[in-house]
């Protein structure tokens, strides 16, 4: 048992979650794998989306995994950073757009 909340070795053990609730776990991994198969979007595009989302959900396992996937696809470091900025812009924008609600509420409450 690790003394920290995150343990790098857990990523390789992700599949072990099927040991409890096997049916649900298997369904999840089947779905997961199907999502990353080539489709309307290329595997490269999906890697960049996953990298951006990984930063949004701040999952260290996902960041390691999709940085590696991005590197495998020859995605450059500046491209990866641009994807992180996309995540940041949406995340920051999501806070800021609530400012309109604040403005309207404040206006309603005040003379």
């Amino acid at each position: 048992m690790s003394n920290s909340y995150y343990d790098k070795s857990h990523l390789a053990k992700f599949g072990n979650i099927t040991e409890l609730q096997e049916k649900l776990g298997t369904k999840f991994f089947d779905y997961y794998n199907a999502v990353f198969e080539g489709g309307e979007l290329s595997a490269r595009e999906k890697a960049l989306i996953a990298l951006a989302v990984a930063h949004t959900v701040q999952c260290p396992y996902c960041i390691d995994a999709y940085t590696e996937t991005s590197v495998k696809h020859g995605i450059s470091e500046p491209e990866m950073m641009e994807a992180v900025h996309v995540a940041c812009a949406i995340r920051g924008g999501a806070s800021l757009v609530h400012g309109v609600q604040m403005m309207e509420q404040a206006k309603k409450l005040t003379m």
Binding site: G38, A43, E68, V71, K72, H73
Partner: peptide, 13 residues
Amino acid sequence: NPAGAFLPLPQQE
């Protein structure tokens, strides 16, 4: 061959 510490992507892809 991979330019780093990782395995290759699937060959066909």
